[in-house]
């Protein structure tokens, strides 16, 4: 089966690339990830506990990164073995595109599952994979956006919106245009701050960017792909 996904990550492409190669960040963000190790620049190993419908198992996965083109794209291939639960294997093309200060990550993955995963969980794989992918990228985005910053994206938006609304209510209608201008300015300022923080975080020398993709691909792809039908 093929699984596709697209995520907007509030960080620069370089930052995202680097984070995707940081075993610590990956371990934190991959749902059910017990261990994750980088054995060399293009190989990672991970143990991920995944549950697909009635099948719950610990998958021992090995991921290889190929066609590295930092910070734009790479290919990840991997296999996870889950003992009697079966296996999942697959690959994904991962691309990072810049969109202003943010990064849009897209992946196209194909995966194959076998054993109990296929026999019992095949129709649940797609949704489980998506759920895991969402969880991973949600955690990943929060992780990148949260470095040294007490505000999450949600907090940021809510704060700005509340401020804008407050100003608008106070000065309306006379100062409405001004208030909106202020609000926009405030938002920009916040975004700029966040970007800086993200860059700082990225600058903390995460290893090769693709690893994260590998892991994501591993977690998302293997788990997701494994789950996908």
């Amino acid at each position: 089966m093929d699984i596709q996904g697209e995520y907007r990550i509030p960080a620069s492409r370089e930052t995202v690339w680097a984070a995707l190669n940081d075993p610590d960040i990956l371990r934190e963000c991959i749902p059910g990830c017990d261990t994750l190790e980088k054995t060399d620049d293009t190989h990672m190993q991970a143990v991920v506990t995944a549950k697909v419908g009635p099948v719950k198992a610990k998958f021992t996965g090995a991921v290889t990164l190929e066609d590295l083109n930092p910070p734009e794209s790479y290919r990840i291939v991997g296999e996870g073995k889950g003992g009697v639960a079966g296996f999942a294997k697959g690959g994904a093309e991962v691309r990072l595109a810049e969109d202003g200060a943010e990064t849009i990550l897209t992946y196209v993955a194909n995966a194959q599952v076998g054993g109990k995963l296929a026999q019992l969980g095949s129709r649940l794989i797609d949704s489980t994979a998506r759920k895991m992918a969402d969880e991973f990228f949600g955690a990943f985005s929060r992780r990148l956006g949260a470095v040294d910053a007490p505000l999450s994206d949600d907090d940021l938006d809510a704060g700005v919106m509340e401020e804008a609304r407050h100003i608008a209510m106070e000065d309306a209608p006379y100062h409405l245009a001004e208030a909106i201008e202020d609000a926009e300015e405030a938002i920009e300022r916040r975004v700029h701050d966040a970007e800086e923080k993200v860059e700082v975080a990225a600058g903390r020398g995460v290893l090769g960017g693709p690893f994260v993709w590998g892991l994501i691909a591993l977690a998302v792809i293997i788990a997701a792909l494994a789950l996908a039908n």
């Binding site: 194959q112 599952v113 076998g114 054993g115 296929a118 026999q119 019992l120 095949s122 129709r123 039908n229």
Partner: peptide, 14 residues
């Protein structure tokens, strides 16, 4: 079966 020889209809769910 899928192309890899996995029996997809292997329970009463499928």
């Amino acid at each position: 079966y899928d192309e890899a020889g996995q029996l997809l209809a292997a329970s009463y769910m499928d």
